[in-house]
Simulated scan of single mutants.
Amino acid sequence: MSLDRPIHADPDMPVALRAALEAALRHPPQRVQRVAAGGRAVWLKQAEQLSLRWRLQKGDTRRAFEADREGLHDLAALGLPVAHVVAEGPDFFATAEVGHSIAHLLRNAEFAGPDRIAACRAAGAALAALHRAGVAHGRPSIRDICWDGQMARFIDLERYRKGRAGEGQMALDVLILVHSMFAITRGPAAEIDAAWAAWRGAAPEGLLHAVRARARRARWLGVLARLGLRLRPALRELRAVPLTLDHVAAQGCDTTAP
C-alpha cells in the first residue's frame, strides 16, 4: 500500500525511521503514537477524524491540532525550548523524542534525587523563557514538559495563540504548572520549590505580582475545592487547588530574589 500523503521530513532522518513513519501513516490514524527505528524515535500526532457527536463533545480538535503545530514552529523560530518538528504533512506532524515528561519523573521513585531537582528547575526556567519572549503556553502541565538530562522542552501546545500574551495569560501558566506538580506530590516538595525559584528568578519584572493577584482572585476555588474534598478526598487535582493557592500566597513580590 503506497503512502498517498505528502511528507516533508528532515534530510538527516534515518532511512529506517522514515520508513517506520511512513508505515505508521498507512494505518488508521491514531491521535498520538510513538514511532521508533534505527535507534531513534519520534512522536507522531495526527488530526482526529471525529463524528459530529464527538466533535460536539470534544470541541474543535482540528483547531487544537493546528495550534499545536503552529506553536511548535513559532516558538522554535524564536529559539525557545520546544520539541523539534522533524516531519509533517497536511494532517500530521512528528516531533523528535526529547526525554521523559516531568510528570513521569515525579511519579517514579527511581528518578528521585539531584537529577529530578535539576529537571524541575529547568522546567521553571523554560516557562520563564517563554514569558520573557511574551509567549504564553496555555497549559504548561508537567506532563507536557520533557527532560532529556540536559534541558527541558515543551510539547503539546494545543492552546497556543499567536501574538503577544498578556500578564493574565502568563500568570495562569504559572498556576497551571504549580498545580500540576502538587497534583502528584500532594504536598510541599523540593521539586516544586526548584521549579518556582527558577521561574521566579528569570521571569519578567512584575509578573510575580500578576500571579499573586490572579491567585487571590481564585481563592473561591480553594474554598470550593476543600468542600469537594469531603466527597472526593482521593481526587488529586482537587486537593492540589488549595495547595497551589496557598503556595503562591506565601511568596513575596520581589522577583529579584528567588
Rank of each mutant, 00 (worst) to 15 (best):
A198W: 02
V82D: 08
L80S: 09
R214C: 00
A122S: 12
G168H: 11
A77Q: 15
H104W: 11
A112Q: 15
A118R: 10
D148P: 03
I155H: 03
P81A: 09
G124K: 09
E110F: 06
A133S: 10
R212E: 02
M170L: 02
R116A: 13
L127Y: 03
A136N: 01
H100P: 01
V86T: 11
A76V: 12
D173M: 11
V98M: 13
E205R: 12
L175S: 06
L106A: 13
F111H: 15
A125Q: 13
V178N: 00
I184V: 13
P140I: 00
A218G: 07
V86Q: 04
G134Y: 01
M181K: 03
G201F: 01
R116W: 07
L172H: 10
R107G: 08
A96R: 15
A119W: 00
I155S: 04
V85P: 06
R216T: 08
L75T: 07
R216V: 11
P204I: 09
A103S: 15
R212N: 03
R116S: 10
A194K: 10
A183H: 01
R217S: 11
G79H: 08
Y160I: 09
A128Q: 03
E97R: 13
A77Y: 10
D148M: 03
G201V: 00
A118Q: 10
E158Q: 07
A77V: 13
P140V: 00
G149M: 05
S141H: 07
R164K: 11
V82K: 05
I192A: 08
I145V: 15
A119C: 04
Y160K: 11
R212C: 02
